[in-house]
Design a protein around this nucleic acid. Sequence first.
DNA 1: ATCTGGTCAATACACCGTATCGCGCGATGT
DNA 2: ACATCGCGCGATACGGTGTATTGACCAGAT
Lengths: 246, 246
Amino acid sequence: MTARREAGEGEPTLVWERPEPPSRPTPSPLSRDRIVRAAIELADADGLEAVSLRKVAAALDAGPMRLYGYLSTKEELLDLMADAVYGEIPPPARTGDDWRGTLRSLAHGTRAAALRHEWFADLLSGRPHLGPHALAHMEASLAALDGAPGFDHIDTIMHAVETVNVYLIGAIQRQIAELRAERATGMDERQWQMASAPYLNRMLATGRYPMLARFMHDASHADAESAFEAGLQCVLDGIAARLPHP
Amino acid sequence: MTARREAGEGEPTLVWERPEPPSRPTPSPLSRDRIVRAAIELADADGLEAVSLRKVAAALDAGPMRLYGYLSTKEELLDLMADAVYGEIPPPARTGDDWRGTLRSLAHGTRAAALRHEWFADLLSGRPHLGPHALAHMEASLAALDGAPGFDHIDTIMHAVETVNVYLIGAIQRQIAELRAERATGMDERQWQMASAPYLNRMLATGRYPMLARFMHDASHADAESAFEAGLQCVLDGIAARLPHP
DNA sequence: ATCTGGTCAATACACCGTATCGCGCGATGT
DNA sequence: ACATCGCGCGATACGGTGTATTGACCAGAT
């Protein structure tokens, strides 16, 4: 055996002068949910790259290693975060025969959630989202179209939903990228022109990009929201065109 | 550490027994281009997260810090990599009045480049791509539509290109994500069903996802290529529907 | 012959994800 | 009531990252 701290023998220090046991700081109760919420808070505030297991744990008054009881990898935390976003998307309103309205509400709901959590865009290129909320969202999307006029076969339904989703993903990425560019140079559009425009102007001045120059000069730059809506209508038109026509 | 440290003012060791100066390993000539190529090689082989300044430098027989003469940040390296991909996209064939063919060739060319460099999908959510090749690609896209019947105004042209691009981005992301999921479980579709299906089957068995179950059971799962083409046709139809009709 | 300026390698630092270890507490068996 | 055990958790450790700083070296100018 080994020397065990026992009152019978040496006990070098008396209780009075011996410090209390480190006084466990009330090990805060943990749950996957609390962990994910803390991570999302960090990501919302400072972006995905500010989410580290150490910081998440610190935000919960816990040591980093404690998280490994709830997750076995940081990637799993990211998966949970993505699924939490799906949980925020309101299920598309079931609007009877108005399948366009259904798909539009679906798209706008998703877009709104993604804009609330910019980092969501960064998680789209990772593995497919198979969490319960993601599945439920997919299920609701399919169900909302089920029985609408023209959508008889599951293939038709899935194709429509997938096409809208693909457009949606692209639109989210585009806008998030744009939004970050603006913020990086100073948040204001005027400031953006001041900061990034010199380079662009120099490029345009080379004459190698006449169409871009024309665009910069002549185009009516629409805001992101209405550009999104316009493209979405375009996709919906395309879907409609391929339905068995009444 | 310092074998030659004694070389103060006595020079105690004789030339004969003193090793030659470490014989600079012929500091390999560097260029932004070589750096980017090395980085792309790494990324193609092992994914974006395998690209570190240290490894890129090592691949070029250089110290990590040497790269900072050519880049001031790792992000800039990623920007250069993304722009290199744009450089690989063949300019859309100018096909006269066949604007659909133009947009299709554009989309397929981009998609092919993205599939050659899976990591490209990960760079889409970052800042907008403003490198010379990206600008040239955009310019070529706009120019290819200029003068096509119905595309009179720059707004019309830009809207069409942007809509296709957005769909394109989404489709690329989707397919890359899917592709990675397959590879993660063992590369083969049969193996994928063996590995990931148990979880999905359990989820479907709960009865909470009837539409998904129906999809799994009844749908004719098309391959990625034709699904992409179908969605693209859908978008093109939508664009056509909003043109001033002949 | 000495100084100088510019390149680059070496070193250092803060941070990351995670494997390992060992302490201390609660539960358990006697 | 006491001895023992298991184990959840913190501390520590390791190999990696991006990058700031430092300092050795060499070319060219004085």
